[in-house]
Simulated assay, not measured.
Amino acid sequence: MDIPHPGARAAHARELAETRAFFARRAADWDSKYPDDSPRYAAAIADTGLTTGQFVLDAGCGTGRALPLLRAAVGPTGTVLGVDLTPEMLDRATAHRAEAFLVRADCTRLPLPDAVADLVFGAGLISHLPDPTAGLRELARVTRPGGRLALFHPLGRAALAARKGHPLTPDDLRARAHLHPLLRTTGWTPLSYTDEPTRYLSLATRTP
């Protein structure tokens, strides 16, 4: 996706650099910092309807925590592609290179053709997209009509805010009131929304 205005391009580049720097500093101890929440990931993946032989894109795959679980869901005939912006995170994800292809890319400009993915899985993704509108639109571009988007976090919004030591803010993009209109304008139809202490999961389908 091209950003035509020079000022917009410069702002986008700055935001990408800030995101990359944020995660680069945290990559080395990312997995040890958090408890093993694989069961929550597995439950979310099961709820997406992902099946054997499908193509799944793990957008913002980070250290690759979801990759083995996504591979188990699609089986040996499926395709798992992990995409992340930060080289240091992808270096950690290479531990899962037997389960997935890994690509360094900006989720607003993916090196993929149209309508290839059956599912886009984004764990903790939406809050870190430099341009959420452009990002969701690009994810829609690479998803087949009827394919799905899963925006996931192993903690709900309130629990995550509490862990970070601050209250929820009224402009939180992950709130249903903000997220669903954004999804509808970027090529998605919302399907379900769960925001509980131990789970955040918003499912949408690619609008034909």
Rank of each mutant, 00 (worst) to 15 (best):
T86W: 00
P181W: 02
D29V: 09
V74Y: 01
E138P: 01
T63M: 00
D114W: 03
G122M: 05
A161I: 09
L102Y: 06
A158H: 11
P113N: 00
A93H: 08
P68V: 07
Q54Y: 04
A159R: 13
T79D: 14
K164M: 07
A42R: 13
S127P: 00
R65D: 03
L179R: 07
G78K: 10
A24Y: 03
R137M: 11
K164L: 13
S38R: 12
T51G: 12
D47R: 15
T48N: 01
A24T: 12
L168V: 14
D131E: 13
W30D: 04
A158K: 10
L201A: 03
I126L: 15
A46D: 12
I45W: 04
A46T: 12
G64W: 01
T133Y: 04
G165L: 05
P197Q: 11
T143W: 07
S192D: 12
G146M: 13
R163G: 14
D36H: 00
P170T: 12
G165P: 11
A59Q: 08
D29R: 14
C107E: 10
G62K: 10
A59S: 09
D91F: 03
Q54R: 15
Q54N: 03
I3A: 02
L173A: 06
C107V: 15
S192I: 11
R109P: 02
P197W: 01
A159M: 09
A115F: 06
T194P: 04
A100K: 07
L203R: 05
G64R: 00
L102F: 00
A98V: 10
A72T: 15
P39T: 00
T189L: 13
S127H: 11
T77I: 09
K164C: 09
T207W: 00
Y200H: 15
T198N: 08
S32A: 15
E196F: 01
G135D: 05
A95K: 10
L69T: 12
A42M: 02
A46N: 09
A140N: 05
L129F: 07
L183V: 09
V56H: 08
L149P: 03
T63A: 09
L160M: 12
R40H: 01
G135V: 08
A159D: 11
